[in-house]
């Protein structure tokens, strides 16, 4: 339990660090030196030092947005087994709670964006409302496969201890598709290239960034921290899926986990460097691919374990 809480705190505090790795990788591909790896901490400190300007159009929903989005991101992390350890909390069906808590944070992010009466933020909100629908279906598809394999409906049953290796033994190669599918979900849910470009300059083409245009100061800091945590959540799952080994030493598992995390973040960075973002109407198709992959993996796995 203590270990889990320490890992949870580690997750929240390390999330900005790992996100900076993406920037480093992008800089490497661009032939630049890139920002320091602690850049996100500097940004957060800078934001927390500042005051805020609120639009006259806004109401309490605008202030609730950052609180709920960070709150739900760190709540979700409590249910996640980090580095193969047990999660702080876990119960049968916690996956549903996790996905719907993310939905709650989405609701409030969108509501905060609509609160400003800005046409750009409305546009971003409309897109933010659309893509995660398919992502959610794909995520449920993945968990349907996991449930069929393990008979359990909690993250701990898939990602803690030896359970992930057991998953590999049961499903085998189709789990590769699941990893791909999950990676697509990661990219879409966290507004990365090719679904969205966090570094774009034109408000018309943004999804997530445009929704927080009006937030400033500590509010923006909370949102940023929340999105780091969200990315960390997905990366942890993929890290565990690609490196499920427990080699006996308690420290070694953690090192492997960090290695996996680094791999995921570097992969995100590489993708951002070599792929251009998709045209807006091609994004649903991209997300649908993740659903198709998960569905497909489920079918062929069922054929195997029959």
């Amino acid at each position: 339990m203590i270990e889990s809480i320490i890992l949870w705190l580690f997750a929240i505090s390390a999330a900005p660090f790992f996100s900076a790795m993406i920037l480093k990788v992008k800089a490497f591909f661009g032939g630049r030196k890139g920002p320091p790896l602690l850049i996100n901490y500097y940004t957060l400190i800078k934001l927390f030092k500042k005051g805020s300007v609120y639009s006259t159009s806004t109401t309490i929903m605008f202030k609730l947005g950052p609180i709920i989005s960070l709150g739900s991101a760190i709540t979700v992390l409590m249910f996640l087994p980090i580095a193969g350890q047990q999660a702080i909390f876990s119960f049968n069906g916690d996956i549903i709670f996790i996905l719907y808590t993310m939905g709650l944070s989405r609701f409030f992010t969108i509501a905060a964006a609509m609160d400003t009466a800005s046409p750009f933020e409305g546009m971003g909100a409309a897109r933010e409302a659309y893509f995660p629908i398919i992502c959610e279906a794909a995520t449920f598809m993945i968990f349907i496969l996991f449930y069929r394999l393990t008979g359990e409906l909690q993250l701990s049953a898939y990602f803690s201890g030896d359970n992930t290796i057991a998953l590999w033994n049961l499903a085998g190669a189709p789990l590769l598709f699941i990893i791909f599918s999950f990676f697509i979900i990661l990219l879409t849910e966290n507004s990365r290239v090719p679904a969205d470009d966090p570094a774009t300059h034109l408000e018309l083409t943004m999804i997530h960034e445009v929704m927080v245009l009006d937030h400033s100061g500590p509010d923006l800091g909370l949102i940023e921290l929340g999105s780091f945590c969200k990315l960390f959540f997905y990366s942890t799952i993929i890290s565990r899926l690609i490196l499920p080994f427990d080699l006996g030493f308690p420290g070694l598992a953690f090192v492997l986990y960090l290695l996996g995390l680094a791999l995921v973040y570097i992969a995100v960075g590489v993708i951002e460097s070599i792929i251009a973002r998709y045209r807006m109407d091609a994004v649903p198709q991209f997300v649908l691919t993740s659903f198709a992959l998960a569905f497909f993996a489920t079918i062929i796995t069922l054929e195997f374990i029959r």
Binding site: A173, P174, F177, L293, I300, F304
Partner: peptide, 14 residues
């Protein structure tokens, strides 16, 4: 039990 043939065929299906 997973055959190598089945793995290849999974790629075909993909």
């Amino acid at each position: 039990m997973i055959h190598s043939v089945d793995t290849i065929l999974a790629l075909v299906l993909l």
